[in-house]
């Protein structure tokens, strides 16, 4: 997750990472991590305060001020067996969503030009 500020809206954080604030803490799927006071007075999420408890590595490029937050760690790469929300453009530029494959058996194959 790229950021030009370490204060982000909870909605953006959830959309980009899958973690959302619930009464029991920050939750993703079945996993919940209690974090005290993750929000600032203005309702923005302080990424510095949640990165470590969630095991997400944060790197900031000092020259540009751009930061990148890695995915949660100390867990499996797969958040679960449910296929993740995924939208990518096809080779003609048309959006494709993984959930459009509902009802079909799908072989999703990664390749590269390199």
């Amino acid at each position: 997750m790229l950021m030009d500020s370490l204060k982000v809206s909870p909605a953006v954080f959830t959309a980009r990472t899958g973690w959302e604030i619930k009464p029991e803490g920050f939750c993703k799927g079945m996993q919940c991590v209690p974090i005290d006071s993750p929000l600032d007075y203005d309702g923005m999420l302080d990424v510095m305060r949640v990165a470590q408890p969630l095991g997400m590595e944060l790197i900031t490029d000092d020259a540009s001020g751009i930061s990148a937050l890695g995915p949660e760690s100390q867990t499996k790469v797969l958040a679960g067996v449910r296929a993740p929300e995924l939208e990518l453009p096809d080779h003609k530029g048309n959006p494709w969503r993984l959930k459009s494959m509902y009802g079909k058996k799908t072989l999703l194959v990664a390749w590269a030009s390199w």
Binding site: K104, K105, L107
Partner: peptide, 8 residues
């Protein structure tokens, strides 16, 4: 079977 290829 549906095949979807993803170019990284």
């Amino acid at each position: 079977l549906e095949v979807v290829t993803v170019a990284l």
